[in-house]
Nucleic acid binder design. Structure first.
Length: 409
RNA sequence: GCGUAGGUGGCAGAGCGGUCAAUUGCAAGAGACUGUAAAUCUCUCGACCUUUGGUCUACGGGGGUUCGAAUCCCUCCCUACGCA
């Protein structure tokens, strides 16, 4: 059975794992490397699909867990699938709910996030404390994960099959295997246990997916885990790469986990040196400029991240000279655009002063204009990386950009 | 003019003899945010001093009672409402 997607590598980055390619899906093509816009609940917050398209987005990612809870995957199926439901005609993908195992479980109520700065080795050594008394909304079991809905407290149980079934109903072009996203502060023993589970769930996700004829128009990506261990990361990549059914294996791969900053180079490189070159790789949940450069350089084709839109709604905007907080007093009378080098709708038509006013006045349009800018900035940054690979000047581009972006600190 | 209720930090508004430099909200200043529990969250917010700490000036003005007053008394000024 042939894959619903096709991936063609156009050019490789000399001496590195990076590459530029074209990914074809049932709803259009994506020029990679590419940044995937996050629209968790079947909407890119604060933006219309037209705005999302106009700012350069090629593909949107929604979330299985959120859409299952609200409005329910059957409703989306009844609407003709995710794309039709949200009026986005381009490619789509859904995350499996695996990240919610982390964000509503181990990370719930803690200072843990997707990229952590915890570097104290003592925090990495101890066995995982079985903190049953810590409140959380997700509990991992051998067979699946119990979720307590953050919306109404009701209990829900996700298994690999359940996640895939929901994702079939949602109907995105690319779907992900159910996985357990672990924190880098977990012990090696826990990482091994979690990886074993993730691999079992990957196998079951793939088998269930292939068993449903409905799934043929959807590509399934397996998700590599393994924490910060080179051994586990490579083992995971190998396992998933070799995993197959009579109808084939995974169509591509996600690289998951909660990372430390340096893992963007090391862990990603380990994984991508093992994964089959001819299949696309998606680095899940990563999207800060430095991380994007390191990901692309080490062979990542797709990224998704809430940072551009969340930061935007909170008043933090990307510029070539680094991030600015538009709420700072100094921008109230600043009549320059957010970024003089930016070609987005917001920068072409509005001043920092206006944005500062909208944010202070808590006007809804603030989130819209800021989201347009941040998404444009990040999406086009990755587009520029792609072009730089094609033009054989990636390394120079990276150096020049980062030097200016981080020169302040 | 009489009566009543009030005058507290940028604003609103608690406190009603010591634990008050003063609850809380807003505003303001700054920070965080990486497969979205997020248009959210955290910190600061009288002045000065190097600190867990200390010193000073503060609850309309002035005076008093008291060991001690934003809190009680007197007086003046001002505000709102009611009656003339």
């Amino acid at each position: 059975m042939s894959s619903p997607i096709k991936f063609k590598i156009e050019k490789k980055l000399g001496g590195k794992l990076g590459r530029a390619g074209i990914l074809s899906t049932p709803h259009g093509t994506i020029q990679t490397p590419a940044f995937v816009t996050v629209g968790t609940k079947a909407t890119v917050k604060a933006l219309s699909p037209e705005q999302v398209k106009d700012l350069g987005a090629e593909i949107v990612l929604a979330n299985t867990y959120h859409l299952y809870l609200q409005p329910g995957d059957e409703i989306i199926k009844k609407n003709g699938g995710l794309g039709k439901f949200m009026n986005w005609s381009g490619p789509t993908m859904t995350d499996s709910g695996g990240f919610q195992v982390f964000s509503l479980g181990a990370a719930y109520g803690k200072e843990l996030s997707k990229v952590t700065t915890i570097t104290d080795p003592s925090l990495l050594l101890p066995e995982r404390s079985d903190d049953m008394d810590m409140p959380k909304l997700a509990t991992v079991g051998a067979d699946g994960v119990s979720f307590k809905s953050h919306l109404d407290g009701s209990m829900h149980y996700f298994t690999a099959e359940k996640s895939i079934e929901i994702q079939h109903n949602i109907g995105a072009d690319i779907i992900f295997a159910f996985d357990e996203c672990t924190s880098p502060v977990e012990s090696t023993r826990y990482q091994e246990e979690a990886l074993f589970r993730t691999h079992q769930w990957a196998k079951r996700s793939l088998e269930y997916h292939k068993s449903k004829s409905q799934g043929v128009n959807q590509a399934l990506f397996g998700i590599v885990q393994g924490g910060r261990s080179e051994e586990l990361r490579k083992k995971s990549a190998k396992f998933l790469a070799e995993l197959s059914t009579p109808d084939g294996g995974f169509d591509g791969f996600g690289i998951g986990g909660s990372f430390a900053k340096e893992d963007m180079s090391t862990a990603v490189m380990w994984v991508n040196s093992v994964l089959p070159e001819e299949k696309p790789r998606h680095l899940l949940g990563i999207g800060e400029p430095l991380d994007l450069f390191n990901g692309v350089e080490n062979g990542v084709d797709l990224f998704d991240c809430v940072a551009p839109t969340r930061m935007a709604r909170n008043g933090t905007l990307y510029t070539s000279d680094g991030r600015i907080n538009i709420l700072n007093a100094k921008y109230m009378g600043d009549i320059s655009p957010i970024d003089a080098d930016c070609g987005c709708y917001t920068c072409k038509n509005y001043t920092r002063s206006y944005l500062a006013h909208l944010f202070r006045a808590k006007e809804m349009f603030a989130g819209t204009l800021a989201s347009i800018h941040n998404l444009y900035f990040i999406i086009h940054l990755v587009k520029k990386m792609r072009q730089a690979i094609l033009d054989d000047n990636f390394t120079e581009f990276k150096e020049v950009f980062l030097k200016q972006y981080y020169k302040g600190g």
